[in-house]
């Protein structure tokens, strides 16, 4: 039993190329998650450092370049991991989007990380989706990828399989 999408128009658009608003929000969510993760990482490392090598505990204020680099790396890692496995990063899963190849096959890891780097470096490339006839961003054109609406993940389609035990009492 799979999850049921009430809106018939939305149901019909499942598997179609997504528009710019959804994709921008998904990227924003991914960026926010990367920011939170980076902050947590800084705080944790700083706390451990202070515990062993310093007398007082303080909130770190890393240089802008360091912070941006860490956020960039975390963003690329999380995006690449998500897109290279199920095609969904956390932000895309939230909005109900999925990245696949133009032939509808899952992304290869190299393709996924290249797309992640391009997205993290030039997020403004998404603006092309507003004008492209096929809703492609610059990254999509370069990596030959497609972003589709797919609200229901595979796990919600597949029934949980249980080992078939013999009839009790038989």
């Amino acid at each position: 039993m799979s999850r049921f999408i009430r809106n018939p128009r939305a149901q019909a658009l499942q598997g179609h190329r997504a528009g710019i608003v959804s994709r921008a929000l998904a990227f924003a969510a991914d960026l926010g998650i990367a920011f939170v993760l980076a902050t947590g990482l800084f705080a944790g490392v700083s706390l451990l450092w202070d515990l062993f090598f310093s007398d007082d505990l303080g909130v770190p204020r890393p240089a802008g370049g360091v912070s941006a680099t860490v956020i960039f790396v975390i963003l690329v890692l999380t995006l690449g991991l998500g897109w290279g496995s199920t095609g969904r990063s956390i932000g895309k899963q939230l909005v109900g989007l999925r990245v696949v190849r133009a032939d509808a096959a899952p992304l290869e890891p190299g393709q996924a990380y290249l797309r992640a780097i391009l997205c993290a470096l030039v997020p403004i490339g998404l603006l092309l989706a507003l004008f492209d006839r096929r809703n492609r961003s610059v990254q999509d054109v370069l990596c030959k990828t497609v972003v589709v609406y797919d609200w229901v993940p595979e796990v919600a389609h597949v029934p949980v399989s249980r080992p078939q035990s013999g009839q009790p009492g038989a």
Binding site: S85, R133, H157
Partner: peptide
């Protein structure tokens, strides 16, 4: 002034298909 509607279909995409590579 675009006359033709956007082509958003992705041929071969199965919404209920397997997702994990």
């Amino acid at each position: 002034f675009r006359r033709t509607p956007r082509d958003t279909a992705v041929p071969g995409y199965d919404v209920a298909g397997p997702e994990i590579r």
